[in-house]
Amino acid sequence: MNPSLSLETIRKTEGIKRLEKHVKTLIQHDKKSAAAHLNDESLTYSTLYILSSTIRENGLNKYLSDRNKVALAIQQDILAKERTPSAPFPYSICDLPQFVQSVLRWMVETGSADQLNARYRLVIDRSAGLLTTIYQDPTDIPLVSELLFKRNDDHHSTHYLTCAYFSSRNFSSLLPIGEKLQSPSQKQVAFASELLHFISGLEDSTDRYAYFRAWYEENLPYLCPNENNYEMTAELSPYVVDHYAKYKEQRTTQSSERHEDLTFQTLSENLKVNLADFSYKLRRNSREEWKEWMRQPLDAQIRLIEEVQDDHHRR
């Protein structure tokens, strides 16, 4: 046994069984020294997970670093049938949430590459869900997006992770998915297209990535979180374009409540889309012309759209 070898190296070169045996030998020799190996900065969460029962059985917890203690407590909480209050940690109530976030990020960052088993995947997916749902830190979005695509690549369930991902209610969460439209992997492109299915016209476009970028730029100020749910329909539409806001050039809020005037509300979906798109293009072209058009009654506005479209078709 070479005690100077890192636990990561032993796991990678000799496998899980050998790693467990190595740690048990270290514990028999000197618990503190064994803990020092576990507390190594370069340790991954997957290795900690593999050794968690050895740690528990040998009473090693008290020698662990705070990162490892918190990670094992999170793991225990996620896998428990009934969750219970956790033991106090040496942090103030204001510092603890920040520390927990950093540990969750470490767990997902260093643990995503390994699959191990369904319980392990559950811990990783739930930890990612806590990051996006509770902490909602935009810097965690790319990390969770990578995990989402990895799960799909490996044919594992993406259901809860997709819901958690969009629970961030951050429209920029669409960007890492859009980037995957350029992936050399057909499976990733197909999954990205499935997640972005609510973007009308994307499926049929010749350059999906360019289409997505143009759509994102055009509609970002008018996006709203959608109420529907993955468990209610086969496809999730996390965000929708607020056509009224786009038509009137109003910025939307993060609230799912949308306000429309009564006349606009009664129009067909198609007409709402046409009005919103025309309004957007006109004001980009000429703000003066747009103001003039907006001053006209609705039926005159619709007439002008029809004339322009008719003219366009003739040409």
């Binding site: 909480d77 996620i78 969750r83 739930r126 869900g129 806590l130 749902t133 509770i134 809860y160 819901c163 958690a164 629970s167 109420e227 749910n229 468990e231 209610m232």
Partner: peptide
């Protein structure tokens, strides 16, 4: 029908709503 649970605990996402 669907009863939505918008503030579901992220540790139990299977209860994000009930069909």
């Amino acid at each position: 029908r669907y009863v939505k649970n918008p503030d579901v605990n992220p540790l139990t996402p299977e209860w994000q709503g009930e069909n």
